[in-house]
Design a protein around this nucleic acid. Structure first.
Length: 227
DNA sequence: TAGGCCATCTGGTCCT
DNA sequence: AGGACCAGATGGCCTA
């Protein structure tokens, strides 16, 4: 992953020229095993969660425990404070009674936990829509890999769209239709894999409506015609 | 065992 | 004042 982090966006895009290559490079391979089996909710420094339940299960469990503190949790809390050199006696502690302060701190912790879980849910949603090898035998994309892959996927889609637009302009020109003419040649990026007209894809609109995205346009009468 | 990745805690800062 | 966001610190788990 160090290699991944050190890559600039462009370098990474060049490296992963073509999305299949990118996903192959990021999928880690099946040998690493499933992160699902590894679990997502590793217990924190408190160490009072012996198992690794689902993220939200952890959130609920800890949030519930933060309402009423047991003696063990009090001890763990103080141990953490001492270990990190933030023990009682500072200016902040003088301002607030320890019990009240701890209760506030726990509620802040729970909120932060929820926030991070929401962030992870969003990342899961992102993983679900970017094409890579979704398989139990393939390790889940890391956060950084997910973001980098998503970025490159967006760039690729933008390039493909641009190429499609140029193609439309070219075809319209051939039929004597008024169309924006670009002097630039077709981008060398046009592998068949990124064409929306590959096998199984819907046929393009016979009227070459502006949508031209491979999916019928609701605004085009030809797109709405029954075959 | 080292390194990568992650969850959690925490204090600080900004915003409403 | 309270909540959201952020970054640093810490420790656990997993893989090479």
């Amino acid at each position: 992953m160090a290699d991944l982090k050190s890559l600039s966006g462009d370098a990474y895009l060049a490296l992963s020229h073509g999305y299949a290559a990118a996903t192959a490079g990021l999928a880690y391979g099946a040998a690493r095993g499933s992160e699902v089996a590894r679990g997502y909710g590793a217990p924190g420094p408190g160490g009072n969660l012996a198992t690794a339940p689902a993220p939200h299960a952890v959130a609920v469990a800890v949030a519930e425990s933060s309402g009423e503190q047991s003696g063990d949790e009090d001890d763990a809390f103080e141990r953490r404070r001492r270990r990190r050199g933030r023990g009682p006696g500072g200016a902040a502690d003088a301002r607030r009674r320890p019990r009240e302060q701890r209760s506030l701190r726990l509620s802040i912790n729970a909120r932060e936990r929820r926030r991070m879980h929401d962030l992870n849910d969003a990342l899961d949603g992102l993983r679900a829509v970017i094409p890579y090898a979704h398989s139990p035998s393939v390790r889940k994309l890391s956060k950084i890999a997910t973001l980098l892959l998503a970025k490159n996927y967006i760039l690729m889609q933008a390039q493909a769209l641009d190429e499609m637009r140029r193609l439309v302009a070219y075809l319209n020109q051939g039929q004597g239709l008024a169309a924006p003419v670009t002097a630039t040649p077709l981008a060398p990026f046009g592998q068949a894999a990124v064409y929306p007209f590959s096998a199984g894809a819907p046929l393009p609109c016979p009227d070459k409506c502006t949508a031209f995205s491979g999916t019928p346009s609701a605004l085009c009468k030809h797109c709405n015609e029954k075959p």
